[in-house]
Write a protein that binds this DNA or RNA. Structure first.
Lengths: 328, 328
DNA sequence: AAGTGTTGTGGAATCGATTACTTATACTTA
DNA sequence: TAAGTATAAGTAATCGATTCCACAACACTT
């Protein structure tokens, strides 16, 4: 590896001058600059980022923590971030927690050690230790899709999206409307979306039977199970079901098809997620597209703003697109 | 930020001793060790990775270059890598080219500057400049899903997977079999899969009309277009079609459904990819699952082996699972 | 002729670690 | 008892950059 000292020697100047030439700081004569450039050209020299970081305390790396990178949602978020960050020479150090709450905290620690310039946190969590940890972090941080005190956030409008969906069902004449959710410790997906459902039902004076509310985890199988429970534990079956994620909805659809129910004839279904696959199901799934790329882009922009001195915490709530398709 | 010097002062030893205690190298008395640990505890000190890297030339970071992180395939590959790497304290520095061949080379450069310990390259390319660049790289490198001279590779068995698919069609009685491919500059997806198709056809003495071979790019829309051309440019229509990716197949299916063809009644269809969504189409798509996570894991293992001294280049060809479902 | 400003350059400290080398004990062992 | 060795800890060089400060040389003012 070529170092700045070798370049200095080749160009017959001190390494100070080389550094100045490289960073366009201070005075460097045309001749010296030319000799330096020639030496750099010949050797293919590139300055060591580590030495630089050690001195300047900036790494041009942003740490990104996601629950998993196997899903389309995470992929789209990260993709959006990368779009903005790479343009300014920042790179992404990826950490995937695989839904392990313990790891979320470990990774924050790890990223701090790596001295990333900022952290974007896109993993769901209810852990209050994490809150604490994040608060005392002296690195800029942005949280995506989750409310948290004292940090910048990019939020989806979970509550209103949920109400919109239920409202659509009601408009179409449904009165018995079921709900497939996840644990409420997940504030966004679990709590807010459920609250939207409940409030919209109440707003129309529609009753909600306890059996209409089922819970799954984040996978397709549990959507299947939830729909099964939904249709076997009460005589008073719902004619429409709102699932909080596309995957849950997919599982639910699978159950319906298997048992010979028609969609939306017997049961209408809709969810939140906007995954690409929803378009190609039969019938195509009605879903809310959160525009995850945009969330990623916005989060990246906030981090960049913080890095250039902005101190105020921002809170952005993104709009969404309601994709009404054949399943309702 | 606490540094090793502060810890040394607090524990009343030299920073050398602190370093030794931290790295379990050389002798440190029990008492000294205790005092050091106490100081670390109190301050929450973590050694700076940059200072470390500067001295040791190891960063514990692996650079990963992918064509895009929006797709399931990439997500699964990266996820598999992360699984193996994070266990040993390595992290992933992600670079996504967005299918821009120029960027592939830029990123290799960028990762080199960041002094990553190794690079995993999972982006398709036909560029010979890249070949050169990779060859002169003194960092360990592993290429996934693409043949290249002089480097370690993790390959999918594109050729045989393609033959298996065609063979299945023939077994089911099809004789007119169409093909939706991509540009052959992509050796794996473009060339090898096509070659498998052609060879299996020849092996059974089946003719291949030029119109049966259509080309798309990597998205759903072009699959739609390819299928359209396939059925409108010749009177001698195929009764089965092999698409080289799941997305192309999906586009093709969309066209068929739109025009009222039945699958597999009028036209059988199968592809390579094993994406999760294929299971939920109607009919479910017959596809070859490449087990991308495994590819990621294997690539990670090879990099790790290289980092611990292994010099020989490895070439692994992964097996695949043929998921035969309703579309054939 | 003295003072001031601009341009160009280099010396040396610094960032936070690791590590080769040295020194100082205490304990074996021939 | 002298030599050898295991244990413990410190000194100082080093990694590859940035940056503060000092110093020249020269051109202008006044």
């Amino acid at each position: 590896m070529t170092t700045i000292n070798q370049i200095a020697k080749m160009a017959n100047v001190s390494r100070t001058t080389v550094s100045r030439a490289l960073n366009n700081s201070g005075y460097v004569s045309e001749e010296a600059r030319k000799r330096i450039m020639k030496a750099i050209e010949e050797t293919g020299y590139v300055p060591s980022e580590h030495a630089k970081s050690l001195r300047t305390k900036r790494t041009k790396v942003i740490g990104v923590i996601v629950p998993t990178i196997r899903t389309e949602t995470s992929g789209r978020i990260v993709s959006g971030m990368d779009e903005v960050l790479s343009k300014l020479g920042y790179q992404i150090l990826l950490a995937s927690t695989n839904l392990d709450k313990q790891k979320e905290m470990e990774y924050i620690h790890l990223l701090k050690v790596r001295q990333v310039d900022g952290i974007i946190f896109a993993a769901t969590n209810g852990n209050e230790h994490l809150q604490e940890l994040i608060q005392q972090l002296e690195i800029p941080i942005v949280v995506v899709g989750q409310e948290m005190d004292g940090v910048s956030m990019v939020l989806y409008d979970d509550y209103h999206a949920a109400r919109d969906i239920v409202s659509l069902f009601i408009e179409k004449g449904h009165r018995n409307i079921g709900f497939i959710g996840v644990d409420e410790s997940d504030r966004s997906v679990g709590y807010l979306r459920k609250q939207g459902y409940l409030d919209e039902m109440k707003h129309h004076n529609l009753p909600v039977e306890p059996e209409w509310i089922q819970k799954g985890i984040f996978d397709i199988e549990s959507g299947y199970g939830a729909m099964e429970r939904l249709l076997t534990t009460t005589r008073n079956n719902p004619t429409a079901v709102f699932a909080v994620t596309d995957r849950l909805a997919l599982g639910a659809c699978n159950y319906l098809k298997e048992k010979g129910y028609t969609i939306p004839g017997d049961i209408a279904i809709s969810s939140i997620g906007g995954s690409e696959f929803t378009k190609h199901l039969s019938p195509p799934l009605t879903t809310v597209d959160y525009q995850n790329e945009k969330a990623g882009r916005e989060a990246a922009k906030i981090i960049l703003a913080k890095l250039s001195g902005e101190t105020e915490n921002k809170k952005i709530t993104l709009d969404y697109r309601f994709l009404i398709r054949g399943s309702v």
